[in-house]
Amino acid sequence: MRAAHPASALLSRSFSISKPRPILASNLNCAATKSSSLTFSRSIQLPALPSVLNWRTMDKSSISTYLRQSHDRVFERNAEWAAQQRAKDPDYFTKLASGQSPEYLWIGCSDSRIPAEAITGLEPGEAFIHRNIANLVCNVDLNAMSVIEYAIRHLQVKHIVVCGHYGCGGVKAAMHPDDLGLLNPWLRNIRDVYRQHEAELDTFDDEARRYNRLVELNVQEQCRNVIKTAALQQSFEEKGFPIVHGWVFGLHDGILKDLEIGFEDTLADVKKIYNLTGKN
């Protein structure tokens, strides 16, 4: 993982299609103006791309064509994006390849509707990113712990953002009495957050409000889990950074809400039991 190439940016596309692949050759004809390729890139160039693929009613060769097209689309857009970046700055990729020193570590949800860079306007190189189901930070998860350790100790990020979102499928699943197999151990962490805040959550009669509040409390607890790490505590003690923020993204309005977790107070509170700085 690397901050230098946000997945969404790599796959961006311009209005004009410069080098269509053979499968998209038909688009050459309707790309006479910038606007035409914009208008018809989805409806004509890729006729087999409905918003929801009903693969149950499609024959095998149509599915196969669809898969080929939706695959090739990514390379097509990537080529356009790379050409655009180079056109804007011929040294863009030389600089990008020379190294990274991102300011932010972003711990967000895997949900496809919350592309971290797109909603924050962060450019390649500005944010180191980890995304998993329901933006969880579990102390036994070496995957997330490696990310946090690398971001703090090696990249020396200044801010760590745990960003959840209303409408989170992981949080929703953890509120239902279903056995989800391999997802159970992962979602258990959210059920634990519920248990920790049971008294407050049970005051909500409205399930939607309880759900929204659990999303917020989950972010707050994951921030706390970041603050429990040795890397965070030691770095903050020695250098005064990074600081941890808890945010929630609203799918209905596209706005990030700062939960104002109170980093320093939380740190002091956490250190009563989880102090790993070697100092009292």
Binding site: R13, S112, P115, D141
Partner: peptide
């Protein structure tokens, strides 16, 4: 720019894009 739209890609990112079979994340 028109990007691959929100809602198109479900994303997991980790250090060195390692797929470890027992990694629960």
């Amino acid at each position: 720019q028109i990007r691959l739209q929100p809602g198109d890609v479900f994303v997991h990112r980790n250090i060195a894009n390692i797929v470890s079979p027992t990694d629960i994340n």
